[in-house]
């Protein structure tokens, strides 16, 4: 049900673009105004969200340690999963962000008669998550050819590697296939795995459908209803050079594609997609486990009421003396200011 809501929402967005830019001919709105607004909202929203996070301090140093600590010289420390230095943390974060290290640990629990529990290796999520993100990244970078002139060698190289299979005209990009497969997998596991389905919100299906919508409209535009790529580049260059104009010959499919991207940009800062920023700031991962080597200071530390030794001794002095325990104040001069 939740998936269907989200799917309809994406259909509705397509329809908006179809009617607005296609039938309504509002090319300037869909080709210039909305993309500009989206980029501004994205940047402002992203920055504000990160600032909002940054405003809250990290009162305690709470890394989740996943290996041997730095301790005695003859004990081998796990410097990546339990870093005690900044370099260690950088490495840990590198593996986390670039290779999804923690997700790689994933297992699936199984119940067998016996009673017996087993933990099966379960790396599919890790694999498809990586494929999804890297193809997304590659596609994003490939798009830079539309926003640069002359196109830097890096983007051209990326494009030729991605299209190296040379299948069809225009030649098929690997990442186009991979992202469709990976996003489909991510969607299917959400509906097929009962536990994941149970915790999923409409807000979990929506970005997947939206991204699939973007990808499919892009693929459609590239391989099927061909759009005049020269005009498109004229439009995109106009956007980045702040001389926006709408050239002739840009098809409706392009406006649909751009509209969905704009929605993604606007949606991004308000949604779970902010994990992109948050992963860098997660205190269980980005702090060194040097807790006992360096005192971490909590900016809002405040004095609290404690039970002092004096109050304790006042209460138990007699018993302590009787038991032969040393006391600060001998019994006879016990003051009357007993609590």
């Amino acid at each position: 049900m939740k998936a269907i809501y989200s799917l309809f929402l994406v259909f509705a967005l397509v329809l908006v673009a179809l009617l607005g830019a296609g039938a309504g001919g509002m090319h300037y709105l869909f080709g210039v105004i909305i993309p500009y607004v989206a980029v501004v909202l994205f940047v402002a929203g992203f920055v504000m969200r990160v600032i909002r996070w940054g405003k809250s301090p990290v009162p305690f140093r709470i890394p989740t340690t996943c290996g041997q600590e730095f301790s005695l010289p003859w004990i081998k420390q796990n410097k990546i999963d339990n870093p005690s230095t900044t370099w260690g943390v950088i490495l840990r974060m590198f593996f986390e962000i670039v290779l999804f290290r923690s997700l790689f640990r994933n297992t699936r629990v199984e119940l067998h008669d016996g009673p017996k529990l087993a933990y099966a290796s379960n790396k599919w999520l890790w694999l498809f998550a990586l494929l999804f993100h890297y193809s997304f990244l590659t596609i994003f970078l490939r798009h830079m050819r539309l926003f640069t002139e002359p196109v830097p060698g890096f983007f051209q190289a990326l494009e030729s590697v991605d299209g190296m299979l040379q299948i069809g005209v225009p030649s098929l990009y690997l990442t186009d296939v991979v992202i469709v497969v990976a996003a489909t997998y991510l969607f299917l596991r959400r509906v097929v795995i009962p536990q994941v389905r149970y915790v999923s919100l409409p807000a979990d299906y929506f970005p997947l459908f939206l991204i699939l919508g973007i990808v499919l409209s892009g693929i459609f535009m590239r391989y099927f209803v061909k759009t005049d790529i020269v005009s498109v580049k004229e439009l995109t260059m106009g956007l980045v050079t702040f001389h926006p104009r709408i050239p002739e010959g840009v098809g409706t499919i392009f406006y649909i594609h751009v509209f969905l991207v704009s929605v993604l940009l606007i949606y991004f800062p308000f949604s779970k997609l902010m994990h992109m920023g948050g992963v860098f700031l997660s205190p269980t991962r980005n702090l060194a486990n040097n807790n006992r080597m360096k005192i971490h200071v909590n900016p809002w530390n405040y004095p609290v009421k404690v039970h002092t030794y004096e109050a304790y001794e006042d209460e138990f002095r007699e018993k302590m003396v009787e038991a032969g325990l040393p006391v600060e104040k001998p019994l006879e001069q016990q003051p009357e200011n007993k609590e």
């Binding site: 969200r49 809250s56 997700l103 994933n106």
Partner: peptide, 29 residues
């Protein structure tokens, strides 16, 4: 607590509900 703990704020915002943690808890198992 949102103002005091960055951990809390971030953990409220970024979970993608991927479910990797779901069957890792002994109480769920």
């Amino acid at each position: 607590r949102l103002e005091r703990f960055r951990s809390f704020k971030i953990f409220m915002d970024i979970c993608v509900r991927c479910g990797a943690c779901a069957d890792k808890c002994h109480f769920f198992i």
